[in-house]
Design a protein around this nucleic acid. Structure first.
Lengths: 334, 334
DNA sequence: TTGAAAGCGCTACCAA
DNA sequence: TTGGTAGCGCTTTCAA
């Protein structure tokens, strides 16, 4: 096993032929005789030759690598989107680099800067929370200015002119709310730790619209919290307010609603119904099984990845926007 | 906003100075006068100059990028290890590329081949299930042969001579089993979907050793299944065997044990105690709270990343092996 | 059928 | 203080 990467140059000096001959032979050029090709390929194989990707990248100006920039990978939603992206990209001749921003604007900016100059051919992005709250978007424009395509998914920025794959957050919660109203629920409470995010705001709008359309239901009530406080807030609302249903907008809230309803001895769904946002797998593993709004994360990932590949291959200048419809999966809590 | 990446060459032609002057000025060389530096830096900033990483990589032979190759990101354990790795690497001047093998040997081989020639400086790896079952390890040797360091974590290959960060799987389950025995449990059953993996086998060994040392306990019973069947198998063992405790070796098994014990009306932990492997967060969100074997995934990730940085910086030839001790976190199920 | 040379963007050595 | 040039590993004309 040779210690270091062998290069065309070294191969050429071993065989006493020129570098270009080696290169052509390994690329199966018709210019080279079969005999020479054979000799060269055998030697290359013997020395375990692998072309240097970096040199290829420099030469061609493209690296066949796509960056996937996501806020977190501990979040099951993003993990599943990633799974979908990965499946599509794996079938192509592209690779992916995954960057985790941990919801930090600085890290997002740094990652884009780091990768936009030569390292990747395009970006798939779900923007960080801090980016959305601070409304700081110039790094996206810069990347676009460098000629690198961006496809945003889920957490998108309206003012940036790029391909987008979105979730129909408004409709999803609008429908979920109506579902609860049809079940006779009057006091439906929203539980959320994602009110900073555009998707969180859209979901709340869907809820408000549904209540607005309905007759004889109680006032809207929106409980916001953070990961650490949402359990306590859920408990508080159960104990001190009239509530006969929860719509939980994220997984922390979903667990909080379920846990606190149980701990406070409420019959689910008779006394309190719950609809939440957690993965299908988790929904099946909690008791009682949780009715969920299914975002079809894997499909979303696949769609996003395909859009990126189309962009990269065709260089089409048209901007596409796609919406993936969420669906309600009924289980024991509603 | 310039459409394309501006290069030193273009900068130099705009300013009418040589490329080397530009390069030196931007790198703050003392050879260049302050005045020229200022002019050059201003122009660079105006044009949003970013050095081309690929060219730098070609030149220097290193890319300041580390590949993290893991079987899955839907698995909470790996997601949390990744989180730890990411935290350490983010503080360094390195970047990470994350590759997901989906437990496939082919993808693992392909990823290493893809990246080992010029793209990354080193590899952090948890080997795929298929790699362990097929005992096919030549791709690791090849990478090592190319002079790229490897740090393996959790899923390690004994015969490969590289840095390793391991979990004390044997002791963890040995201790968990003893804990149950002390509680008076006699018929402790193992539930596992990871019997193919080295870590799964080690855990079983720990269980067997503990039972061997104990007096007056029942015969060992090891129930193996896959994700789809483990619920059914758990149910079966509860209904048809004497069992007063489960040790579940993975998260699917943990959920199965908990769910089936509840569905079959068993008092937890009086009739059936359960110790499982799921994330601390999940353990707190299921009811009753699940006693877990905590692998300290984030710490494990940090340790692994530090080891890699040490390797990369010092080029020390010594091989290090570290073990991260698992601990039992007692909750309501034991 | 083979080889020499230029060039991708950058740094570093050596001259001027 | 500046500039010319070689070279990282590769592909691709253009000559031989």
């Amino acid at each position: 096993m040779p210690k270091n990467n062998i290069t065309l140059k070294e191969l050429s000096s071993i065989l006493g032929v020129s570098i270009s001959t080696i290169s052509k032979a390994l690329n199966d050029s018709h210019e080279i005789s079969e005999a020479t090709k054979k000799r060269i390929k055998e030697l290359a194989k013997l020395h375990n030759y692998q072309p240097n990707k970096i040199a290829l990248g420099l030469k061609s100006g493209k690296t066949n690598t796509i960056a996937v920039v996501i806020p977190s990978v501990q979040n099951a939603f993003f993990a599943r989107v990633l799974f979908g992206i990965e499946q599509i990209i794996a079938e192509s001749n592209y690779n992916i680099i995954i960057c985790i921003t941990n919801e930090s604007l600085d890290k997002e900016v740094e990652n884009l800067r780091m990768l936009s100059n030569g390292v990747v051919d395009g970006f798939i992005i779900a923007v960080a929370e801090e980016t959305q709250t601070s409304q700081s978007f110039s790094h996206f424009k810069e990347v676009l200015g460098r000629g690198k395509p961006i496809v945003m998914f889920d957490r998108v920025v309206e003012s940036i002119n790029c391909d987008k794959v979105m979730v129909d957050d408004f409709n999803a919660v609008f429908n979920a709310t109506n579902h609860l109203i049809k079940l006779g629920k009057k006091n439906i409470v929203i539980l959320s730790t994602i009110n900073n995010l555009s998707v969180g705001k859209l979901r709340v709008k869907g809820y408000l619209a549904a209540l607005n359309n309905a007759e004889g239901v109680g006032e809207p009530l929106i409980i916001e919290g953070v990961r650490e406080t949402i359990d306590e807030k859920a408990k508080d609302v159960i104990q001190n307010h009239k509530v006969d249903a929860f719509i939980a907008l994220d997984d922390f809230s979903s667990f909080a609603a379920l846990k606190m309803a149980k701990l406070n001895g409420k019959q689910i769904p008779q006394e309190i119904a719950i609809i939440g946002y957690i993965s299908e797998r988790m929904a099946n593993n909690v008791t009682p099984g949780l009715t969920t709004i299914n975002q079809h994360a894997t499909r979303l990932g696949k769609t996003t990845a395909k859009m990126m590949l189309d962009k990269l291959n065709s260089k089409s200048e048209t901007i596409e926007h796609t919406v993936i419809n969420s669906t309600l999966t009924l289980r024991a809590t509603s």
